[in-house]
């Protein structure tokens, strides 16, 4: 597609490990693309091949097969990285530098002019929530602060594409929320964000498209709302004041309900039956409290793929 900022076709990576040089296939025939302006979640359990795929894309390791491109250029072409920001997992930076020295150094590597660096760096500290930390040596930064400065360094060239490897790891719930908001704010400014994670509620909340990788293979790919399993026929019906006899009669179809005080929650397998089921409940002396269509979460999809 014309507006793909990342395109990965049949990428594979085999490592040789140990004394006997045993082959380990970390990534096998992975194909997907990321469109301009999207927030793309790259999901998978630990050791699934997420970081390996990202490292191939960043030119840190060389694929054993397939092609990868960024902005339509081969990923090995350093010009493809001019408008790209990358924050690795568990970042370790030059601990003898202060925060602003560090960002200034990285700005120079992108060829950002010094006047522009002086203007942009304080804004970056502000943006990632590290106000007043510019003159602090990186060795004094906490894990969460390093994660934030890791994102700040990825933004130092005002990139069009941001690749973040596990940006939420090491952050507390407040920090995670701030990063999530930052990602959404960057999308509003027209950036494309590709990030790997295993924190699924965040993904469901902010991602346009996701890919699920398990054991080196791409299992699912698409827009979250296109995942068929997320739509479910299951419907929860809650009555108040049903008699024991009526509960017994209704549960023949649904199985035993969850009873809390005067409330009884029934799980209907099909939505079509809801209307008549409500009628039967009301006839049994109950009053309808709620009717809730059940939706499976991305976590359910993820877990079922991971278990396969």
């Amino acid at each position: 597609m014309g507006n793909d900022v990342i395109s990965i076709e049949h990428a594979s990576k085999t490592f040789r490990t140990g004394f006997l040089y045993r082959k380990v296939e970390a990534v096998r025939d992975v194909t997907f693309s990321v469109e301009e302006g999207d927030i793309f979640g790259f999901l998978g359990p630990n050791g699934a091949g997420k970081t390996t795929t990202i490292k191939m894309l960043m030119g840190l390791i060389f694929p054993t097969g397939g092609t990868l491109s960024i902005f339509g250029r081969p990923h090995t072409d350093i010009a493809s990285r001019a408008a790209l920001g990358y924050a690795p997992e568990q970042p370790y930076f030059y601990e003898y530098l202060t925060g602003s020295e560090f960002l200034d150094y990285y700005g120079q590597l992108f060829g950002v002019p010094s006047a522009e660096r002086r203007r942009r760096i304080p804004l970056l500290f502000e943006m990632v929530g590290l106000r007043n930390c510019a003159d602090l040596a990186l060795r004094r930064y906490s894990k969460g602060m390093l994660q934030r400065i890791g994102i700040a360094q990825a933004l130092v060239n005002d990139p069009r594409l941001l690749v973040l490897d596990e940006p939420m790891s090491g952050l507390d719930p407040i920090g995670r929320r701030e990063i999530r908001d930052l990602i959404l704010a960057l999308k509003k400014r027209g950036k494309t964000i590709f990030f790997s994670t295993h924190i699924l509620p965040d993904v469901e909340m902010i991602c346009d498209r996701v890919a699920i990788i398990v054991k080196g293979e791409l299992r699912r790919l698409g827009r979250i709302d296109e995942f068929a399993e997320l739509e479910s026929e299951e419907t929860e019906v809650c009555f108040r004041g049903l008699s024991a006899e009526a509960i017994g009669k209704l549960s023949g179809e649904t199985g035993a309900p969850v009873v809390r005080g005067t409330l009884a929650y029934f799980s209907l397998p099909s939505r079509d039956r809801a209307q008549s089921f409500i009628g039967e409940g009301q006839a049994g002396g109950g009053s309808l409290v709620s009717l809730t269509p059940r939706r499976r979460s991305l976590e359910d999809v993820f877990m079922s793929e991971a278990r396969k």
Partner: peptide, 14 residues
Amino acid sequence: DRKTVYTIVSKPVR
């Protein structure tokens, strides 16, 4: 070892 090289060679630096 400290993975600092990751953030350097992923930039437009040969």
